[in-house]
């Protein structure tokens, strides 16, 4: 008897409970999205955000994204120095690692490091190249079928 009543009760309540639970879950996730988990889970700060947060960031290590400014890339004995810009704000970067193959002026990069104490310089020890999902043929008129392009 107890089994039967428990089961039938569970089954009867099921549809209503299903709706309630569904509404709760949708509302909870909607709340999360509306409030924006936003900035906190972000992988990097853009250059302008990093400069705006300069005082609270101090010398903590974080990732900064921006475009490598043309004409600012210099090879040094320790690595590569350059400037990064995003939304009109520019920060000089002192980097101590060998940049990846695709690193070039005009490209978006993410650097890992921290602001140097007392200066506006950013000290980085890792560069990652960020690229978009736009894929444009480099030489659309010079395609030769059969030519080994992977070399």
């Amino acid at each position: 008897m107890a089994v039967a009543s428990a089961r039938s009760r569970g089954r009867l309540e099921h549809p209503r409970r299903l709706w309630v639970v569904g509404v709760i879950i949708v509302a909870a996730i909607g709340f999360l999205l509306a409030k924006g988990l936003g900035s906190s889970i972000n992988y990097f700060e853009t250059v302008n955000q990093a400069v705006a947060l300069r005082s609270s960031l101090g010398t903590t290590t974080f990732r900064m994204e921006g475009v490598v400014v043309r004409g600012t890339v210099h090879q040094t004995s320790r690595g590569t120095d350059f400037s990064m810009r995003s939304h009109g704000v520019t920060v000089p970067v002192v980097n101590t690692s060998s940049p990846p193959q695709l690193f070039a002026p005009g490209r978006a990069v993410v650097v890992v490091g921290h602001f140097a104490r007392g200066t506006d310089k950013f000290l980085s020890n890792e560069i990652m190249v960020k690229h978009s999902a736009n894929y444009v043929a480099a030489h659309p008129n010079r395609v030769k079928p059969g030519a080994n392009g992977s070399s």
């Binding site: 695709l102 736009n134 392009g149």
Partner: peptide, 17 residues
């Protein structure tokens, strides 16, 4: 691997696309 062209910003590396 053979027919498609390289891309402007990725070069040959676009092939993994």
């Amino acid at each position: 691997l053979w027919v498609t062209p390289p891309s402007t910003n990725l070069g040959q590396l676009v092939r993994l696309l």
